[in-house]
């Protein structure tokens, strides 16, 4: 089981890196699906089969498909891929990447150096247990999530209703200069 965990975790990290570095949006999204599936496997090996199923159904299933539909409607062409490529020059990302790598190394050192408690036997948390927790002690948390969604929907409704196109001032200046 431990080996499965490590393989799935490695796949998740690799596919997420691929999501960031792809020039073509659709390719990036397909890697995102892989990343979600890998995370689902991680959940499964840690004893949360219900969470794994939710991850597949909601994230990989519903959300990414929605994003893919939107991108297909945007009608991306080869030009957009080219522009993506121009934006993602090594000069842009090498500096931050090196600094982040240093931080990552520190974090890895901290996690490795810490005397972590020995992992207990994996206990499967099934749907019934999740349901009992959510509608038992954490009922207020569920209600707060509902409020969170309300805020998101009302905000999205208001911001999405506008027809007027507003351009960022930097872009405006550039287009005026060109």
């Amino acid at each position: 089981m431990e080996l499965t965990f490590y393989i799935a975790a490695a796949v998740a990290i690799l596919s997420t890196v691929m999501v960031i570095t792809r020039y073509n949006m659709i390719h990036a999204l397909l890697y995102l699906v892989v990343s979600f599936l890998a995370v689902a496997v991680v959940f499964f090996t840690l004893g949360a089969p219900f969470m794994a199923a939710l991850e597949v159904i909601i994230y990989a299933g519903a959300i990414v498909v929605l994003i893919i539909f939107v991108i297909m409607m945007l009608n991306m062409t080869q030009e957009d891929v080219q522009r993506e490529k121009e934006w993602l020059q090594p000069a842009t990302w090498v500096g931050p990447a090196i600094l982040s790598a240093v931080l990552l190394a520190e974090l890895v050192y901290i996690v490795v150096a810490a005397d972590t408690p020995a992992a207990g036997a994996v206990v499967a948390v099934d749907a019934k247990f999740v349901g009992l927790a959510l509608f038992g002690p954490y009922i207020l948390g569920v209600q707060l999530s509902g409020i969170l969604l309300t805020a998101g929907i009302v905000g999205a409704y208001h911001l999405g209703r506008q027809k007027k196109k507003v351009i960022h001032r930097f872009l405006q200046e550039r287009s005026a200069a060109a």
Binding site: L144, I147, L148, A151, G152, V154, G155, A156, H158, L159
Partner: peptide, 10 residues
Amino acid sequence: EVLSVSLYAL
């Protein structure tokens, strides 16, 4: 998050 998400739109 309730605070932040409301503020994004506000």
